[in-house]
């Protein structure tokens, strides 16, 4: 009797019509001859009807292994399911939609900051600071306002830890953390809802 250790991968990608073997979705540790046998077990073939996501549960993997050799003892660790993302055709990024979104963000960012300035009477505050510091009255205190405008952009870049491609240090930026959290939420949703093992309705016949 052989003991094998299995660790499911979190997310893998597969092409349409690809046969998914155990080695594609999990790492297996154990005696050499057992591993070579297990790794080639075919779990499923990706079909058109699968749409773009399949969830494979650990239970399915263990069942497949026991079908081949019931004497193998399986120890598991790590995630208990793998999400297979099916890439039917490499989705090409549309430069038009990118340009539109870019323009939207540019104009939107500009407009919101202007509204904000009016809302909090930023101009009056700048005039007042000008008077406090220099003792003169100035309708357009551009000496504060131009550095202010560039500082605004610098502060945002600083917060996101990016200057185009260059980064200030190794830590992930808040935006990257936010993207990661969003992906995790999506994955958790998919795990619960696409996995037939998890949900059982009364009228499921």
């Amino acid at each position: 009797m052989a003991v094998v250790y299995i660790r499911m991968r979190n997310r893998v990608q597969a092409k349409g019509n690809q046969t998914v073997r155990i080695k594609d979705i999990a790492r297996i540790i154990g005696p050499e001859e057992v591993i070579t046998k297990i790794e080639e077990i075919i779990l499923l073939t990706v079909k058109k009807e699968d749409k773009n996501i399949i969830v494979i549960d650990l239970a399915q993997v263990i069942m497949a292994i026991r079908k081949v050799d019931p004497t193998i003892e399986v120890e598991t660790f790590g995630p208990s399911q793998t999400i297979i993302e099916i890439i039917l055709s490499k989705k090409k990024m549309s430069y038009l939609s990118f340009a539109l979104v870019w323009f939207l963000l540019f104009v939107g960012g500009g407009m919101t900051i202007m509204n904000f300035h009016v809302d909090v009477s930023m101009g009056e505050v700048h005039q007042k600071i000008f008077t406090i510091i220099t003792g003169k009255v100035e309708d357009k205190p551009l000496l504060i306002q131009i550095p202010y405008s560039f500082g605004l952009g610098m502060g945002m870049i600083l917060f996101f830890n990016h200057f185009f491609k260059k980064r200030f240090n190794e830590e992930p930026s808040p935006l990257e953390v936010e993207m990661f959290n969003y992906q995790q939420d999506l994955d958790r949703y998919v795990i619960m809802n696409e996995n037939k093992e998890n949900v059982r309705h009364l009228d499921d016949r």
Binding site: F106, G108, G110
Partner: peptide, 12 residues
Amino acid sequence: LMALVLGKIAGS
């Protein structure tokens, strides 16, 4: 991100 940053600077 840069669109938003440049938009803020330009708007200001």
